[in-house]
Design a protein around this nucleic acid. Structure first.
Lengths: 148, 148
DNA sequence: GATAAATTTTTGTTAAAACAGAAATGAAGG
DNA sequence: CCTTCATTTCTGTTTTAACAAAAATTTATC
């Protein structure tokens, strides 16, 4: 990925700016490719992430704030995101008996099965995105990214 | 930035996934911090980028497709984005005389002045974001990011 | 020159995100 | 108990983005 080529500039930009633009461009690429991979399942990346979090709960229900905590991109409308998964039958939602302010959200069998399919295409896409990296380079990259 | 801590997971995830989540988290941080820095000027990051592109034109008008080409995040609604800058008096827009399909967009004096102010806070924010990097590390990071 | 095709921008519609505030419930203190 | 405050979720509103199609103009072809 050549930053200057993509944003069609010949100017030399400060290394700091270039780095941040670079990250944004890569993020756009990730978002687009994984979004496309998920399109056949009619779920957004966010919905996919929620499903993965729910699976990670291993049967323990999650409430909305737990979901929000663990989501990569936080948002205030997690309610409506879960609404959509509910409409697809991928999750169940009910009021928490011990604290009726909270809700309990669980992935359904149908959601689990769909998620297994999604995992495959997403993993493929992820591998495709990082295909030019050696394992060592990825480790090095992660170390550098940790500095943010 | 500790990925595992932010998304509150203790599970060991594949290096490929961790890298991509990492990029997304950093992007969110960049977007949030620069967005906040621009808030006093009531422009979005996208609007700020358009203004910078227009300044880069050095008086030469840009049409919408040129803007789109050079934008970091492409979008189909550049028209409406320019509408907003127009409403703030930061740009001028008129039909291109030599090809009446096109429009010519120019940054105004007022836009230039505002942009100078924005540049300051954005540069400060950018430096803040990469404050834990040495110049050498930034170069190394850019080399790795080029591999995407 | 008329017709078809291509380019560029605009508009309409729907979906998603951001922001703020309301509603419901629970906890704490008098 | 009653009031106040805190927590959690939901709802309403406004922006922004994504997608598709329409409108206007130019270019190409017959």
């Amino acid at each position: 990925m050549n930053v200057e080529e993509i944003i069609k500039t010949s100017k030399k930009m400060p290394l700091e700016s270039r780095t941040l633009i670079h990250i944004t461009l890569i993020h756009n690429k990730i978002y687009e490719l994984i979004g496309n991979a998920l399109k056949p399942f009619e779920v957004s990346l966010q919905q996919f992430n929620v499903l993965r979090i729910l699976r990670g709960q291993k049967g323990k229900p999650a409430n909305l704030s737990t979901l929000n905590d663990r989501m990569v991109t936080k948002m205030s409308n997690t309610t409506r995101l879960v609404d959509k998964l509910l409409a697809k039958g991928y999750v169940d939602r009910c009021v928490c008996p011990s604290n009726r302010r909270k809700v309990e959200i669980l992935i359904t069998e149908s959601g689990s099965q769909a998620l297994t399919q999604m995992d495959k295409v997403v993993a493929e896409t992820e591998n495709e995105i990082v295909q030019h990296f050696t394992k060592q380079e990825l480790e090095q990259l992660n170390l550098l990214l940790d500095k943010f």
